[in-house]
Amino acid sequence: MGDEEGATKPRVLQMVRADGADKSCVTFVLHNEDHTLGNSLRYMIMKDPDVEFCGYSITHPSESKINFRIQTKGGLPAVESFQKGLEELTAVCQHVLSKFEASVEEYKTQKDVSME
């Protein structure tokens, strides 16, 4: 009757922009996400000097939905800042994963050598 354990929910992204608003101020709604993505993505986007404001809020604890707002200084559209932040966050995560996997392999190699 409920969600099956281990089943993943589809990720959905909506873009909300007020009528007449320019492209420098956009709110994105990320479904099936929480603080894990929200805070790390906010950090990556705020590193961009063209971004004037970036923040997120969780609508309600029982909903897994984030309202993510970006406002740029006007030179770069908010959508591009969002995409750039996602790409940079992905690169950081890939770097951490590769370092972790290399350390695990090194540990396994050292353990095999010491066992002989």
Rank of each mutant, 00 (worst) to 15 (best):
E4N: 12
E4A: 12
E4W: 11
E4H: 12
E5D: 13
G6P: 00
A7F: 14
A7V: 13
T8Y: 10
T8L: 14
T8S: 12
K9M: 15
K9I: 14
K9L: 15
P10V: 14
P10E: 15
P10N: 06
P10Q: 12
P10T: 13
R11C: 12
R11G: 11
R11H: 09
R11P: 08
L13D: 02
L13I: 15
L13E: 08
Q14V: 12
Q14W: 15
Q14Y: 14
M15P: 00
M15F: 07
V16Q: 04
V16I: 05
R17V: 10
R17W: 03
A18N: 09
D19L: 14
D19M: 08
D19Y: 12
G20Y: 00
G20V: 07
G20P: 07
G20C: 04
D22H: 06
K23I: 13
K23P: 03
K23E: 15
S24C: 11
C25S: 15
C25V: 11
C25E: 15
C25A: 15
V26T: 10
V26A: 02
V26Y: 02
V26E: 04
T27M: 11
T27A: 05
F28E: 03
V29Y: 07
L30P: 09
N32H: 14
N32C: 11
E33Y: 00
D34N: 13
D34V: 05
T36M: 10
G38Q: 00
G38N: 00
N39F: 11
S40L: 12
S40T: 11
L41V: 01
L41P: 00
L41F: 02
R42I: 05
R42E: 07
Y43K: 04
Y43R: 13
I45V: 02
I45A: 05
I45Y: 01
M46Y: 01
M46D: 10
M46E: 15
M46R: 13
M46C: 09
K47T: 05
K47F: 09
D48Q: 08
P49C: 05
P49E: 06
P49A: 02
D50Y: 13
D50L: 02
D50E: 15
D50T: 13
V51T: 06
E52G: 01
F53R: 02
F53A: 12
C54Y: 07
C54I: 04
G55F: 08
Y56D: 08
S57D: 04
S57I: 04
I58N: 02
I58A: 06
I58D: 09
I58S: 04
T59Y: 04
H60A: 00
H60C: 03
H60F: 05
P61H: 03
P61Q: 07
S62L: 15
E63W: 06
S64I: 00
S64R: 10
S64E: 05
K65M: 12
I66L: 15
I66K: 00
I66F: 04
